[in-house]
Simulated scan of single mutants.
Amino acid sequence: MSRMMLITACLALVTAAATAQSGPVIRPLTTSPITSIRGLSVVTDDIAWVSGTGGKAGRTLDGGKTWQWMSIPGCDTCDFRDVEAFSGDVAVVMAIATPARIYRTEDGGKHWQQTFYDNTPGMFLDGMAFWDADNGIAVGDPLKDGPREDFVVFLRTRDGGRSWESMDEGLRAKYFDAIFAASGTSIATLPDSNWVLVTGGSESRLNYKTPGSLSGHPIERHIEPKGSAGLFSVAFRNAEAGVTVGGDYMRPTETKFNCHRLTGKYLEKEAVQTPPRGYRSCVAYLDADRYICTGPTGTDISTDGGITWKAVKGEGYHVVQRAKTGSRVYFAGSKGRIAVLTDK
């Protein structure tokens, strides 16, 4: 081999290696004192809040360089599966299980006000979503007894989570078996006070509220009832384009039914050619045609609206969110891990 051919071959190998290593990677930021984090809200590139087990929450005001950790009084056994933050000072956290609780802080977590409490047997909140700083919705499992038996629990706030009222959306449990609280993202808001809720069990179902009506349709029907399988998370590019992820958390490497694209006025299912590499508990919209999803076995990204997915270098997490104002992407998960997405 001539010297020129050898140089050309070496340059080709270097280029190939660089190409293989290109693309986004996950960079760990810190390990928190929260055993498991499933609540994550990113206000700006610098401001992010997390919440989780042990009645704990945390925030950063400098892009993750430093964190302040807080324990909400009287909530040592609470699991705060969702958090919605509006600034470095204002945030709302939601606890699952009975009694269901929601708290709000307006001073960066120094003080917390309990704004919702319900000890009805079987009460179990699954997630929150907000249209803006005032208007939001929370969803919970259907109750087994009482006047609202077998109807999904819906709560509405019109003052930023300072107060909540029960809302009758008329969604019955007969259409599905489970609402998942894996990342607080089973419900998402759309314009004009509309919302979308994804569910699972024996049937993976898309449920959505449009002006004056409640609609929905099955995404997949499972041969055997599975309380561990279905749709876990949904994110939207706009009112007629979104992605939902899930799978079976008892079979975390299985890819069957773990991702669907939603398109059109009625959010019909569209084909996914290359799915994520296993069960995924959360999906987030990034920009243009990019989505990112994560779960216990890893993280995947799509650059074509959810049609094909490829692995992101780094560990898997419970939840991923992009900054509401900005572009930074944060992750949080088991063992208190928190990370960000970087270009290299």
Score class of each variant (00 low, 15 high):
150 D>Q: 15
150 D>H: 15
150 D>W: 08
151 F>V: 00
152 V>G: 08
154 F>L: 04
155 L>S: 02
156 R>W: 00
157 T>P: 14
159 D>G: 14
160 G>R: 15
165 E>Q: 09
165 E>L: 04
166 S>R: 06
167 M>E: 00
167 M>S: 03
168 D>Y: 15
168 D>P: 15
168 D>W: 15
169 E>Q: 11
170 G>A: 11
170 G>F: 11
173 A>Y: 05
173 A>C: 08
175 Y>G: 09
180 F>E: 09
183 S>T: 11
183 S>L: 11
184 G>C: 12
186 S>F: 10
186 S>L: 14
187 I>C: 12
187 I>W: 14
187 I>V: 15
189 T>N: 02
190 L>V: 01
192 D>W: 05
195 W>Q: 03
196 V>A: 07
198 V>S: 11
199 T>Y: 07
200 G>R: 14
202 S>M: 10
205 R>Y: 08
208 Y>G: 06
209 K>M: 08
210 T>C: 01
210 T>N: 02
211 P>C: 06
216 G>W: 06
216 G>N: 03
217 H>M: 13
217 H>E: 09
218 P>T: 15
221 R>F: 01
222 H>L: 15
225 P>V: 02
226 K>G: 04
226 K>C: 08
229 A>K: 10
229 A>C: 12
231 L>N: 15
231 L>H: 05
234 V>C: 07
234 V>I: 12
234 V>D: 05
239 A>H: 10
241 A>Q: 08
245 V>A: 01
245 V>Y: 02
246 G>R: 07
247 G>L: 08
247 G>K: 04
248 D>M: 10
248 D>K: 12
257 F>C: 12
258 N>P: 14
